[in-house]
């Protein structure tokens, strides 16, 4: 796999040399590969938001480097500006950014800032609307007439329309109901598959992130505490608990079963995986061998 983003010894200090000085990230090194789905977890204040805002150049490192495709994103101003488009960042509650008269124009804001032709803008808006499941009829409405779930999709479409190589989303499903959550996650996955884009998703829901991510990065106190497959990360339940994080519900059930004296591998994290582990034990035969 080839890396698309390389973070080297990144440190970020807010309000330096004031009484409010605060080190949000210290010496973080991390590589994101092309086409990879990374789940970023950590409790509030662990440095996740600061980290993702470095990846598209919204924040400038106090020290350290961010490389995109092997090039320092702060090398020259034109490149830094390009990075905004190639690394798309969807903030928490992104519907707060909607401002245009129609959904179409709002989604077109990013592509227009890229300086694309009208035809290309149109193509991209329609494609982004397709990825996020917005009907063409919705595109001519005012964004403020939409339902909560639709607003969220329109806002995500506004970033997807820039067709970034890396799509970063900060809790894209916050505040949505179960069906709304499921469909947004499906949209993100379809974009990733179609564009072979890398996705970095911040989430507080371990169940959600466990089913989606190829790799989990755990942040704690401004550093990367763990990085590995969900399988590897969730098998360190004790350490996660010490960081104030939970393991997915299924892992909890299996861990509890171990407490009850059942020898079962607790690293399953989806319902299907858990059932797979449990079925042999529940069908008799070699259950307690």
């Amino acid at each position: 796999m080839t890396p698309i983003i390389e973070i080297q010894n990144l440190t970020h200090v807010y309000s330096p040399q004031t009484p409010f000085e605060h080190t949000a990230l210290s010496d973080v090194s991390l590589t994101i590969d092309r086409g990879e789905f990374v789940g970023l977890i950590g409790h509030t204040g662990s440095g996740k938001s600061t980290l993702i805002q470095h990846m598209n150049g919204l924040l400038r490192p106090t020290s350290g480097h961010i490389l995109f495709d092997g090039r320092d994103i702060w090398e020259d101003a034109a490149f830094t500006r390009q990075i905004r488009f190639r690394v798309g960042l969807v903030f928490q509650y992104p519907e707060a950014q909607l401002f245009e008269e129609t959904v179409f124009r709002d989604i077109a804001f990013g592509p227009r800032n890229m300086g694309l032709s009208e035809d290309e803008i149109r193509t991209r808006v329609l494609r982004a609307a397709g990825f996020t499941g917005l009907d063409e009829a919705v595109l001519e409405k005012s964004p403020f007439e939409l339902s909560g779930g639709q607003k969220r999709r329109a806002a995500i479409a506004g970033v997807i329309a820039m067709e970034p190589d890396v799509l970063i989303l900060d809790e894209p499903t916050a505040g949505l109901d179960p069906s709304g959550r499921a469909s947004i996650l499906e949209n993100i996955r379809s974009y990733q598959a179609a564009q072979h884009a890398a996705v970095i998703m911040v989430s507080h829901s371990m169940e959600e992130i466990a089913t989606l991510a190829d790799r989990l990065v755990v942040m704690n106190h401004g550093s990367v505490a763990m990085s590995g497959t969900p399988h590897a990360v969730f098998s360190r339940a004790q350490e996660l608990a010490e960081m104030g994080l939970e393991v997915p519900c299924m892992t909890q059930v299996l861990l509890e079963l171990r407490h009850l004296g059942v020898r079962v591998d607790p690293s399953a994290y989806t319902i299907e995986q858990a059932a797979e582990r449990l079925l042999p034990l529940l069908k008799g035969g070699a259950a307690h061998a």
Partner: peptide, 9 residues
């Protein structure tokens, strides 16, 4: 849930 599974086993 764990207890019920244990009981079933």
């Amino acid at each position: 849930c764990a207890q019920a599974l244990r009981d079933a086993m």
